[in-house]
């Protein structure tokens, strides 16, 4: 037996954690626990990002996702956590159909993953020769419009701007949507008298 190749070990560890907690999210019925498992799963994912050499993305995953997005979700959980919503049962039939479809999808995806020989990984000897390059600087340059890494030609400045504006709009929109209803009655009226197809011939 060869010595353990530690990156693989960590991949296995993080991978199992990520998958395991993902499955736990799926199977848990309690919404609070689900949120917790989700945090664990996403954190483990960031570990996988580091392993794949994406240090910056890994860090962002931890900061934005685990630190930001999920906290938002947990707020949601707390805001709606009445007794009757904490545990909601699903019909067995839905589970069966879900598992049938999901299982088939999983099998297909895994089969696809292993059907390309080039994706199976590299030799250990070659792997130990690899030099790890930092990615923060090239990423930052890329976002600012000047790619420095080899192969990249176009920067992402425009996309970066679009995403920023989009984020801004979204946050404003979210705030608007989420604020307490003042004119509930009018809104109901507005939606109720539009009947679908009323203008069309019967």
């Amino acid at each position: 037996m060869d010595a353990i190749y530690w990156p693989s070990f960590f991949f296995l560890l993080f991978g199992l954690l990520a998958c395991g907690f993902a499955v736990a999210v799926l199977l848990a019925t309690n919404i609070v626990r689900m949120a917790f498992y989700l945090i664990m799963s996403l954190s483990a994912t960031s570990g996988l990002f580091f392993l794949a050499g994406a240090d910056f993305v890994g860090a962002m995953q931890l900061m934005i996702y685990v630190g930001g997005t999920l906290v938002l979700l947990i707020f949601g959980v707390m805001l709606t956590s009445q007794e009757r919503f904490v545990e909601m049962k699903t019909m067995a039939g839905d589970w069966i159909f879900g598992f049938l479809a999901g299982g088939a999808l999983l099998v297909t995806l895994c089969w696809v993953a292993f059907s390309v020989p080039a994706w199976r990984g590299i030799d250990r000897a070659a792997a130990e020769q690899l030099q790890v390059e930092p990615t923060v600087a090239p990423l930052a340059m890329g976002l600012l419009g000047a790619r420095t890494d080899e192969g990249g030609e176009h920067g992402y400045l425009l996309f970066f701007e679009i995403v920023s504006v989009h984020l801004l709009v979204v946050l404003v929109g979210a705030a608007y949507l989420a604020r307490a209803k003042i004119s509930r009655g009018t809104a109901a009226e507005r939606t109720s008298h539009v009947e679908p197809g009323a203008a069309l011939p019967k």
Partner: peptide, 22 residues
């Protein structure tokens, strides 16, 4: 698995599991 480097496929499997769970 433990003494050979992993490849894209392995990541894809993890990704697939998370995707399907989701």
């Amino acid at each position: 698995l433990l003494n050979e480097p992993i490849g894209v496929a392995h990541f894809m499997v993890v990704g697939a599991v998370m995707f399907v769970c989701g």
